[in-house]
Design a protein around this nucleic acid. Sequence first.
DNA 1: ATCAGCGCCGGGAAAATTTCACGACGTTGC
DNA 2: GCAACGTCGTGAAATTTTCCCGGCGCTGAT
Lengths: 217, 217
Amino acid sequence: MTATILLVDDHSVVREGYRSVLQKQPGLRVIAEAGDGAEAYRLFKSEAPDLVIMDLSMPGIGGVEAVRRIRQWDKAAKILVFTMHENAGFAVQAIRAGARGYVTKTSPPETLVRAVMDVLAGKIAISPDIDHELALSRISGESSAADVLTPREFEVLRLLLAENTTDEIAETLHVSPKTVANLHSLIKDKLGVGSDIELVRLALRQGILTQPDLGDA
Amino acid sequence: MTATILLVDDHSVVREGYRSVLQKQPGLRVIAEAGDGAEAYRLFKSEAPDLVIMDLSMPGIGGVEAVRRIRQWDKAAKILVFTMHENAGFAVQAIRAGARGYVTKTSPPETLVRAVMDVLAGKIAISPDIDHELALSRISGESSAADVLTPREFEVLRLLLAENTTDEIAETLHVSPKTVANLHSLIKDKLGVGSDIELVRLALRQGILTQPDLGDA
DNA sequence: ATCAGCGCCGGGAAAATTTCACGACGTTGC
DNA sequence: GCAACGTCGTGAAATTTTCCCGGCGCTGAT
């Protein structure tokens, strides 16, 4: 019995790479490919693959959201995240969303194959570098944003990173600009950063702010 | 006569993809692979390939710097940049550094092959999406940082994004904190942004600030 | 040679923002 | 009931940002 696989990555040349690696492995068969989250969801429903290999950064709905939706449709779906982000924050997000594995693209092909086998066998597969990252972040506990912030604070943080001025946020939140400024200050305090610049970079590292570069002008 | 190629990308599975695509093309032969800029430079010198296919985001010295060094070593080197960044800023940097082509990873395999052929034939190859980006950025001219800023301003900008406080920058630059604050304000003015957060995001888009996520904690 | 223009450096003062201390209200949990 | 906490807001002090200014040195044009 060969296991069927759905490949999800927005770079076709990269999918070619996955396929090439997986083909060499007996017992695996790639039956479909998707280039974004929405297509992945659609194909999962129609093809019902045994395993999904999913990239994180994709146009439209991102990988994490795609994982969430697929798991919502099939609570037993086996999804292995395969991404460039060597970052504990992303891994935590992905696992929380329902991924059964997280492997970085810097890993050698064997690691990917091994992870595929593990996930198919029902195990959880995390690549060693991320394991290490995770351990580190536990030790030298960088405040990890999403935990130490209250829901309201977190929302203000997201808006600060996306929207612009304090006043705009105050309006969309129906509170006084003063409150937003207070929260802004409190957030920086809780996160242990001194400037907005550090704040953005922290958010970047932790995957709160996702966009790498889309939307130039 | 078959053309020899050096592949540079820090993700081995991705290199697998390139190879797979290029192998199908008669007249092309991949003779070496590198996982970072330094290795690429070393291999270029020892293997003297006809063409280099280079990723941009890599550990250690990045792709742009690698392009620069290789071109310094061999002014006639043919380098094709193949990256995920669908961003005019990166393309401009790469071309200025000496790349002869710029293709995004979202492009279909044919586009890559076509670009490889064009560059080998001595032409400049830019993928259509970037051409479009370039045109757009010319029209709705986003201030493009590096141009409108004087050298000194640009340096302060870099330090703001990397270093932290105004005072630290003042010291490393041997000027008064006041001057740094003034420059900081002037930079935001010239770039047309209202807050530091926008400033960081602009820098991100334009590739002034490169690190995507390395160095979590 | 003179002068205008510009990059660079910083002072001063007004304006805006950040920060801190504090109070109020509702919820939750012991 | 009450302590603990999240949320919202005020006010006033502290700090930063911003704007306007003058001075210096260089370059290029007249």
